[in-house]
């Protein structure tokens, strides 16, 4: 695609996106106004947005955001660490792969939320409960990707490294890890979204501190537009998390064919 065409197309695309959001908000505004849904259960968009803006000025709101994001970050970080480490170890050995395969395929589909009772039993209404659920869900996302990545190492690249005398550790560092990195980044991006979902779910259901619990409290207190405002806030956080992850991915994988601009045939 030539430059001028690209430059002209981008603003159009962005404008279209903004128009879409405005359209959505207008429809939302209209629904309770026309009376399709009772305004008590679905306050108009303007009211919810106002409540959200008001939240932005409250310390309690930011405290809840902080708690949710802390659980999200710790859970995600630990899961990524564990999954990367185990993925590399298991992925590098055909024996271990075969040995763990069926167990992984059994454990992986268990929905994290099914572990809520267990988490409560173990940790009670504390952040550790959220952490356990977040870690369980995010772990598999990353682990599976790392396994694929380790298996994708190019034979010629490996032989090159060996012929230049790179030892086992140097080969992992200079060949296996960079090969796996794109897979790992995909895994982390997926896990980041899943971790956020689990963080909110845990707070909502278990009542561990954070935005999820605030939503439950707002609902039981009858602060319906406040509740919607918090839901919107979680959505915004989700968007920000995804943007941040994409940014990190672009930066670390500038050399990778999915990111780089030049294409060599």
């Amino acid at each position: 695609m030539d430059k001028t065409k690209k430059a002209r197309r981008r603003p159009t695309k962005q404008l279209l996106g903004i128009a879409g959001i405005i359209g959505f908000l207008l429809t939302w505004e209209a629904i309770p106004w026309v009376g399709i849904v009772d305004a008590r259960f679905l306050p108009p968009a303007s009211e919810v947005t106002l409540a959200l803006v008001r939240d932005f000025g409250l310390a309690a709101f930011w405290l809840a955001v902080g708690e949710t994001m802390l659980a999200w970050f710790i859970g995600l970080a630990l899961a990524v660490l564990a999954a990367t480490l185990l993925g590399f170890i298991i992925g590098s050995s055909a024996f271990l792969r075969g040995f763990t395969n069926s167990t992984v395929e059994f454990l992986r589909p268990i929905p994290s939320v099914a572990l809520i009772p267990l988490a409560v039993l173990l940790f009670g209404v504390k952040m550790e409960s959220s952490l356990m659920l977040i870690m369980y869900a995010s772990f598999w996302q990353v682990f599976i990707q790392v396994l694929y990545g380790v298996a994708d190492v190019d034979n010629v690249a490996m032989n090159t490294a060996k012929s230049y005398g790179l030892g086992q550790f140097a080969r992992i560092r200079h060949v296996v890890f960079p090969t796996t990195l794109p897979y790992l980044m995909t895994g982390v991006r997926l896990a980041a979204s899943v971790a956020l979902i689990l963080a909110i779910t845990a707070e909502l259901v278990i009542g561990s501190p954070g935005l999820g619990r605030e939503i439950a409290l707002a609902q039981s207190g009858g602060a319906i537009s406040g509740m919607y405002a918090l839901v919107l806030a979680t959505g915004l956080i989700g968007v920000l998390v995804n943007l941040a992850m994409r940014f990190v991915e672009r930066k670390t994988l500038s050399w990778h064919s999915s990111v780089r601009a030049e294409v060599i045939v």
């Binding site: 190019d154 010629v156 090159t160 230049y164 005398g165 030892g167 200079h174 064919s257």
Partner: peptide, 27 residues
């Protein structure tokens, strides 16, 4: 030292030209 036919796979795409040449020496 070995030079392989498949240069595209033998050179590491995550390293710049200089880093590729330098790696065995660094090692």
């Amino acid at each position: 030292a070995v030079v392989f036919q498949e240069y595209g796979r033998s050179l590491f795409p995550w390293m710049r030209v200089r880093e590729n040449v330098e790696l065995p020496l660094k090692n």
